[in-house]
Amino acid sequence: MVGVGYTLMCEQTGPKDLVDQAIRAERAGFDYLVISDHYYPWLAEQGHSPYAWAVLGAVAHATSRVRLMTYITCPIRRYHPAVVAQKAATIGVMSDGRFTLSLGAGENLNEHVVGAWPHVHQRHEMLEEALQIIRPLLDGDNLSYSGNHFEVPEAYLWDRPDTPVPIAVAASGPHSVELATEYADALVCDVADPAVVRMYDQRGGAGKPRYGQATICYGPDTDDCVKTAHEQWRWAALNWTVKAELPGPESFVSASEAVRPEDIAQVVPCGPDLETHVAAVRKYVDAGFSDVAMLQVGVESQPMFLDWAEHELLPRLREL
């Protein structure tokens, strides 16, 4: 049976409301919660971007059952890897072992606030070094590390959960899949790509969790949903190689000017039809994913979505 998650979208919701959504999502029956880790929203229309780790601490205290996960933290620029390990271990303790740390190479949008954005090849080197730091620290090692990009003269985590925090790595191709199998306990992929899952299995990931994310815009009126999705999510029509390089919301506005409402409706299922949204999850299940987080576009619709998910969506997804 597929694990179904709920996405706490920092880019479209303030911190107190995110905690309230987490409590409601747990009550609705979601298996886990993922939280975006941004410094900026994608578009100014989204209007928020609180510090995800402060929200996670509150959510860990306010919930008792659901698993928690970052989606996705970049440990190469805005955060030093040793600090990421400390934050992850602390949330692991506060959540009584319910936390998974999901890591990726990040986007210019969030990381340039502390300095120049590295070239993609350098970013991949930095991510591997970060994993070489974070993994042993979470395992309880006293670490000294000297790399091309990071220095850790000496580090040890004094507060850790009884079981080390699991790590998931975002992957889309051979190199990132290799990192996921060598250093992590799970795979993350935003695209329902069976080729990535097969590659992960062949390189040693068989039997480990594979996390995806299905973006939808549920609501009683399809046209209203399409309007909301276009207003707040039109950047999703861009290629990831473009999205990783754009420096701010204004750039995403410019880059997505030609995206029409009908274009984004092809990317984001919109409206009230249950089976349309189930199909968005089924794509991941058929591709071999074990867990899929639902991302509901639009802050005003979250209470309605959570009620609908509890009574209709989740019971239907349990059948997959």
Rank of each mutant, 00 (worst) to 15 (best):
T215K: 07
P209S: 06
A168M: 14
D159A: 14
A186P: 11
D221N: 14
D162K: 12
E178D: 13
S176F: 04
P209A: 07
Y211M: 13
G207E: 04
G212A: 14
P209W: 06
S176P: 05
T215M: 13
R210C: 12
Y200W: 10
V169D: 08
D193K: 04
Y200E: 07
A192Q: 06
A171S: 08
P174R: 12
R203M: 13
R203P: 02
A184C: 04
Q213M: 14
Q202R: 15
S176R: 07
D190C: 09
P220H: 12
L179N: 10
A214E: 02
G173Y: 11
G212V: 02
R198T: 15
G212Q: 10
P220T: 13
V177Q: 06
A195E: 09
E178L: 08
D185H: 03
D185V: 04
P194F: 11
T163K: 12
I167S: 04
P166A: 06
M199A: 15
A184Q: 03
G204T: 00
S176L: 08
I167R: 00
E178Y: 06
Q213H: 04
I216S: 04
G204P: 12
T163W: 02
E182Q: 15
G173W: 05
T181G: 03
P164M: 04
S176V: 01
K208M: 08
S172D: 06
V197G: 10
C217Q: 14
D185T: 02
C217P: 11
P161E: 04
G173H: 09
P161M: 08
R198D: 15
